[in-house]
């Protein structure tokens, strides 16, 4: 797989408000190539808003997002995904009315490359064997863990180099959470992916992340190496409430 090395995502002073209420207030972060960055914070901290603004789903009030040398601010989601950034929304966002196979194909369609489509499908099936068994069933019939596998697999279908994951562990059993986290970690190692991982499950996220950002009420409270933040339990207990 050919990769362009050294593309970095840079978020600079990003602010987003919904109807005058600030959801994100001057947040900056950098995700270097081939790294995992965890964004932690309680409900309403602005984690999802951050990820949605990077993906182009919400327009920021101020600040910029750039990837490599490209300015993403103001671009549409369908244009941003073509630059190699793929977002997995909270809950996976699988399209229940379509089959597993159709969900996966859909993410590859814009590439218009039939030979690579088959290859990409095979790779996802090898990565998540349970999906292969249910390939032609409606996505509706999947279990929670399988849905998250489908969501991550679908994001990989677009040959993304940067994955934006919004709470992939939400509502899943601990065994599935560790499987998903392990897979994310392996993908970084094997495919050289970069990952922005939004999580409330701080322990799981910090275990695989390189860098970590703690958000509260739309602002950055702490920005550290993940290993350091993992030892500052009082800090994240104070903000995450556990």
């Amino acid at each position: 797989m050919s990769r362009k090395k050294g593309r970095m995502l840079e978020v600079d002073g990003l602010s987003v408000s919904y109807g005058g209420v600030a959801a994100l207030d001057g947040v900056s972060l950098r995700i270097p190539d081939n790294s995992i960055t965890a964004v932690l914070g309680p409900n309403g901290a602005g984690k999802s808003t951050l990820i949605r603004a990077i993906a182009g789903l919400v327009r920021p009030r101020a600040g910029t997002v750039s990837y490599g040398r490209r300015l993403l601010t103001g671009m549409s989601p369908e244009a941003i995904v073509r630059l190699g950034i793929s977002m997995v929304p909270e809950g996976g966002g699988i399209i229940r009315e379509l089959t597993v196979d159709e969900n996966l194909r859909l993410a590859h369609l814009w590439r218009r490359d039939r030979a690579d489509l088959r290859k990409a499908l095979d790779e996802v099936m090898a990565l998540f064997p349970p999906l292969a068994a249910r390939r032609h069933l409606p996505a509706n019939s999947l279990s929670g863990g399988e849905r998250q596998m489908l969501a991550v697999g679908r994001a990989l279908m677009s040959r993304a180099e940067l994955l934006l994951l919004d709470e992939p562990s939400l509502g899943l059993a601990p065994r599935i959470v560790s499987l998903i986290m392990r897979t994310i970690h392996e993908l970084r190692g094997q495919r050289g992916l970069s990952v922005l991982l939004v999580e409330q499950n701080a322990r799981s996220a910090l275990a695989i992340a390189d860098e970590a950002l703690l958000l509260s009420s739309g602002r950055t409270v702490a920005s550290r190496r993940a290993g350091e933040l993992a030892h500052e339990e009082e800090l994240w207990h104070a903000y995450l409430g556990y």
């Binding site: 073509r82 369609l109 814009w110 677009s158």
Partner: peptide
């Protein structure tokens, strides 16, 4: 067809479809 698949996706879940690169 791929066009038909995109049209169904755009009808069922427009926001998700856009995230997957569908020009809704």
């Amino acid at each position: 067809t791929g066009l038909g698949l995109s049209m169904r996706a755009a009808a069922f879940a427009p926001e998700i479809a856009r995230l997957l690169g569908v020009r809704v």
